[in-house]
């Protein structure tokens, strides 16, 4: 997804560019944190021991490979998390905007 596509999907097209940049940075941070939360769930104690050893060796390539090896397709997984976050944000934002316009209580969703 391009930045423009994300901006359209989130419905922040009327936001000034500076604020858009901040929002997208924050979105990247939000996605990264969720990705890391899910990665952490995949790593067993033994995995963390092995990772620990690789970190001590300061072998960046090995660290990356090890983490990605815990997923069938890491890039697909990361992209899916990103898409889910954006979808959730967009859905809830629409619900709030509708509620704002119509004076109703928003019906939101929260993926847990």
């Amino acid at each position: 997804m391009t930045a423009e596509e994300i901006i359209q999907k989130l419905g922040i097209d009327k936001v000034d560019p500076e604020t858009q940049k901040v929002l997208l940075d924050n979105l990247a941070n939000t996605v990264a944190t969720r990705v890391m939360a899910e990665v952490s769930e995949r790593l067993s104690d033994e995995d963390l021991d092995q990772l620990d050893a690789l970190i001590d060796k300061n072998d960046e390539g090995a660290v990356e490979w090890f983490v990605k090896s815990k997923f069938e397709n890491y890039d697909e997984f990361a992209a899916k998390v990103e898409e889910e976050v954006i979808d959730e944000l967009a859905t809830n934002k629409r619900a709030i905007e509708e509620a704002y316009k119509n004076g109703e209580s928003p019906v939101t969703k929260l993926n847990l």
Binding site: A3, L24, L27, A28, V31, V67, K68, Y74, A79, E82
Partner: peptide, 10 residues
């Protein structure tokens, strides 16, 4: 190990 947004520079 990050997602696409980071690759976009965010």
């Amino acid at each position: 190990v990050s997602a696409g947004l980071t690759a976009l520079g965010f």
